[in-house]
């Protein structure tokens, strides 16, 4: 069964290029149309329903998000394309949405499409979209992190994460409401993502939210959190931790 794909891009050269790359790399994908504006997009969607969409964010004066908000549940997966939009990129990352940045290599495009079509289940997708809109429009400190595994999509406000524990290539999130969420992404990935927040990599296996730090037991090299949880602190991190704790309040 062929997968239907819609390309929304106001730069005709780019959309032509994308179409060519797709048809070469994925014989099973059928490009159902090239739209340059939202109006053109609507026209196409009236006739057909794509399995996934490749969409530029800025279409002339228009922004694709305005159009996407009109759906209660977006009926297709989207790979966003952007030339530059720091806010959007940050929001994509937090919401675990697929995106590529211009100018891009053919391989980047191919990898993004592969990843998207691997799971076209839309059951939880609207949650992700909601989180995205929330993150895109809200102030930086109140972001919501989308944690996605095979079974579920969890939306966790950053301010409610107690700590993240590493287990091989999995990351285990512990939240204030006592949830434990396991995600198949490395701790390193989240450490990067949560930079600029009050998270601290206290140990090879721990990323801890210092907002919940209660006591630091120097002798045991253990950081006690407000919920009583004990977090290991590597000897080499002691000084940095003390410095950060002093800065905190």
């Amino acid at each position: 069964m062929a997968l239907k794909c819609l390309i929304i891009e106001d730069d005709l050269n780019t959309s032509a290029n994308i179409k060519e790359v797709l048809s070469t790399a994925f014989p099973t994908i059928e490009v159902i149309g090239l739209a340059a504006t939202i109006a053109e997009t609507q026209n196409i969607l009236e006739v057909e329903t794509p399995d996934f969409v490749l969409s530029d964010i800025n279409l002339g004066d228009e922004v694709i998000f305005d159009f996407l908000k009109s759906f209660k549940k977006v009926p297709f997966k989207i790979i966003f394309i952007t030339a530059y939009s720091k806010y959007a990129v940050d929001a994509f990352k937090f919401s675990a949405l697929d995106f590529i940045e211009k100018p891009f290599e053919d391989e980047t495009l191919i990898a993004a499409v592969k990843n998207a079509i691997a799971n076209l289940n839309l059951e939880q997708y609207h949650k992700q979209m909601e989180a995205f809109f929330y993150n895109y429009n809200s102030a930086q400190k109140n972001k919501k992190l989308v944690l996605k595994n095979l079974e579920e999509v969890h939306i966790v406000p950053v301010s409610e994460i107690l700590f993240v524990k590493s287990d091989n290539n999995y990351s285990e999130f512990h939240t204030t409401d006592r949830r434990k969420i396991v995600v198949s992404k490395s701790l390193k990935f989240y450490e990067e993502q949560l930079k600029g927040y009050s998270f601290f990599r206290s140990h090879q296996s721990y990323l801890v939210n210092l907002n919940f730090a209660k006591t630091f037991h120097k002798t045991d090299s253990v950081l006690e959190l407000t919920n009583g949880e004990q977090i290991a602190v590597a000897g080499s991190k002691t000084q940095v931790l003390l410095h950060k704790l002093a800065q905190l309040h």
Partner: peptide, 10 residues
């Protein structure tokens, strides 16, 4: 940057 990256894309 938006313009520059678009230009580079072109």
């Amino acid at each position: 940057p938006h313009f520059l990256f678009n230009a580079l894309n072109g």
